[in-house]
Amino acid sequence: MLEIKNLTATAGGVEILRGITLTVNAGEVHAIMGPNGSGKSTLAQVLAGHPAYEVTGGSVTYKGQDLLDMEPEERAQAGVFLAFQYPVEIPGVTNAYFLRAAYNAKRKAQGLEELDPMDFLDLLEEKLKLVEWGPEIMSRAVNAGFSGGEKKRNEILQMAVLEPSLAILDETDSGLDIDALKIVADGVNALRRPDSATIVVTHYQRLLNHIVPDQVHVLAGGRIVRSGGKELALELEERGYEWLTEAAGAVA
């Protein structure tokens, strides 16, 4: 599904990704872990096409297509979804309007007819259950005045509506209490399909208790310094990142 080869990227002239190689197959969950500043959020945002980053080398192939050659909206329409670490507030645009615009953009790209507001509301009813929300959330402006937990739940709601093939969760666990964490994680698990894949970017192991990864990769200094099974996350929880980053430093 996703093949990243020797990917390098800069932000403001500073090299942040220094050669990432990673393959994610359909049905898999990969966790990207690492200390602050290791480049894990950058990787997530580069995959979504964030304009603040410049890709300087390497390739990313998604379902056989050159992902780096696609506009951010084309990536989304093709099934890539980034759950933001800091979801953006859009005062003046209701959740209902925003979600329908996103949903219809995807339908249009697939050559399907757009859904009118009434039919869309029916579809939403199902999706709202997933994040344990009532319909009143739909008339609120996108993320405006939402608590940290509400924002993350709203990301999952968007994901539920868009049904991505590749979901990238960027620090989705940060700022969540344990109840909200469970709602978010249950939502993500419910949305997994045999033909979809998930990349979970996180600093801590606790989210991985709920979303169990097939593989864990540790990023340090813009490179993957260790890959392993889910037990690697537990080891990191116990020992911290230092033993790995030091080793990486020695290599660099």
Binding site: E73, R75, G92, F98, A109
Partner: peptide, 28 residues
């Protein structure tokens, strides 16, 4: 740029996102 990217990352084309955000700027 950030809200614009947020809209795009949800599949909303750049031009449409710009109209939407411009509208939102004034609607309140």
């Amino acid at each position: 740029a950030v809200p614009l990217f947020y809209c795009q990352s949800r599949g909303i084309p750049a031009a449409e996102a710009q109209t939407l955000l411009t509208y939102a700027f004034a609607a309140d």
